[in-house]
Amino acid sequence: MWLPAYATRSERLGRLFVVLFAVAVLVFLIGPLFVVFPLSVSKDPFFTFPIKEYSWRWYADFFENTRWTKSLVNSLIAAVFSTALATLLGTLAALGISRPGFPWRKAVMALMISPMIMPVVIVAVGAYMFFGALGLTDTRTGLVLAHAGLAIPFVVVTVLSALSTYDANLTRAGASLGAGPVSVFFAVTLPLILPGIVSGALLAFAVSFDEVIVALFLTGADQRTLPVQMFSGIRDQINPTIMAAASLLTTVSIALFVLLSLIRRVRRA
């Protein structure tokens, strides 16, 4: 399989083995994602296969229970606002960092990326303590600020990667034709890096929408997000309504992923 003509017989056998191994790993990767969907439409409250009877009752449960619907709305609100904030700040930062004369680039990048690698519990407890002193715990503002901080590195990295293929001569050309830096940005740079910015925004949205730990510490009953509601549910007693919630979260993730892939395709074409 995908071998040159001179390959020996044992090489072919070995290759077949490696390919089968890789396929097994890919099934291992993708399989668990699709466990929740069938269980969410099973009539049985037990998580057993094969499914005997299908029913939408768990989705009805989800949408009739205000605790679930409210948490979904809370998640959407937090994600929209933190995405807007992170995209604005992250894009500006990437524009600065990509300029040739940017000082202390390595240190600044190391700092910008650090929210990605920081143990989330430390972030969450720190925010709980600091925001608590400012009266921002149990508020939407606190959650949005913390989520925006977590999402900024994702925007910076994606926009920087879009800028790495941007030809700086285009900026010079715009300037030589008499446009000021701001009009050059909006007329030339922005349209070209827009796919990168949108990709970053999609990532930022996913980061906030899926985040559990910071939300667990920063939200009270009124701002509780969907993942927090799910987490407490699983800790308590896992029930099929959680499968419905998990399916909804996964659907949103897949939708964001498909959007991103479409943007990438447009960019390449």
Binding site: L89, L92, A93, F102, I122, V123, F130, F131, A146, A148
Partner: peptide, 25 residues
């Protein structure tokens, strides 16, 4: 000018991220 562009994000991260973690530690 390049630094000024990155400054808002840096300050934001220091306030929502660095300071809380530092205080906690």
């Amino acid at each position: 000018r390049a630094l000024a562009l990155a400054l808002p994000a840096l300050l934001f991260l220091i306030v929502t991220f660095g300071a809380p973690i530092g205080l906690f530690l």
